[in-house]
C-alpha cells in the first residue's frame, strides 16, 4: 500500500527566467540572455566543479541545475543507502532538440554522426546525469506526457515509496529551443511544520504560485 505520509522537503522552479528555491527567488535571467548562457551562468555562479556539465545538452543542463538547487545541503548519504533514492521525471518534448541536432549532423557531416550529440538522444539521460553526479542508485523512470500530469507524478512517487524508496527526486523538465520549464521536488518522510504534504493539491498549488 502506498505511503501517504510523504512531504515535500525542498522544491526548485526554473521557469520564466527565474530560479526559485523553496519559494524564494535566488536568480534571474538577464535581458536577452539565451537559455544555454543562462544555465552556464547558473553553473558558474555556484562554483560547481563538474566539467561534464559543459558536454550536456540544454535539457540535461536544465535538469542538472534544478537537481543541484533542490539537493543543496541535503545530507541524504548519511541517512539512506544510495539504492533507496529514486528519481521520477516527466517531460513533453522528450529529447527532441538533440534528436534534431543528431539528424542535422548526419546530413551536414556527410554521414558522420557526433557521438557526443547522439548520447543525448534519450530523455532519461537526464536521470543518468543526476544519478552519476550524486551517486544515486535507486529506481528511476522518465515519463513523456502531453502536459505536466500531477496525478501521475504523485502516484508514481507514492509507488516508489511503497516499493522501498526512502527519498525521491521528482518533477517536470521541459525544453524545446528557448522554451523551458523545470520544477523539481525532493519528497521524503520527514515531517516539519513548514513542509507541505506530497499531494496533488499541494503540487498544483505550488505550480500556481506567482513565481
Amino acid at each position: 500500500m502506498a505511503d501517504k505520509n510523504l512531504y515535500i522537503q525542498h522544491s526548485c522552479f526554473i521557469r520564466a527566467g527565474k530560479v526559485v528555491v523553496d519559494q524564494s527567488q535566488i536568480e534571474q535571467e538577464e535581458d536577452g540572455e539565451h537559455l544555454k548562457a543562462f544555465l552556464k551562468r547558473l553553473y558558474k555562479s555556484r562554483e560547481t566543479d563538474y566539467s561534464k556539465f559543459h558536454k550536456m545538452d540544454a535539457l540535461c543542463k536544465l535538469a542538472f541545475m534544478a537537481s543541484e538547487y533542490v539537493l543543496e545541503g541535503v545530507d541524504w548519504k548519511s541517512e539512506i543507502p544510495a539504492e533507496d533514492f529514486a528519481i521520477v521525471l516527466q517531460n513533453r518534448s522528450s529529447s527532441y532538440d538533440s534528436d534534431l541536432e543528431h539528424a542535422d549532423s548526419i546530413q551536414r557531416e556527410g554521414g558522420i554522426a557526433s557521438p557526443a550529440v547522439f548520447v543525448y538522444t534519450l530523455p532519461n539521460i537526464m536521470i543518468g546525469e543526476i544519478a552519476i553526479r550524486n551517486g544515486i542508485k535507486g529506481e528511476n523512470a522518465c515519463f513523456i506526457t502531453d502536459a505536466f500530469n500531477s496525478e501521475l507524478l504523485v502516484d508514481q512517487v507514492e509507488d516508489a515509496f511503497a516499493e522501498g524508496s526512502k527519498l525521491v527526486l521528482t518533477g517536470w523538465v521541459e525544453q524545446a529551443a528557448e522554451d523551458y520549464e523545470a520544477f523539481f521536488f525532493l519528497v521524503g518522510q520527514q515531517s516539519q511544520a513548514e513542509k507541505k504534504q506530497w499531494t496533488v493539491d499541494n503540487v498544483k498549488g505550488l505550480l500556481h504560485e506567482p513565481f
Partner: peptide, 13 residues
Amino acid sequence: SIDALELIVLLEK
C-alpha cells in the same frame, strides 16, 4: 569513452 569516439570522428573529419 564518448570523448574517445568523438576524437575518432574528429581525426576522420
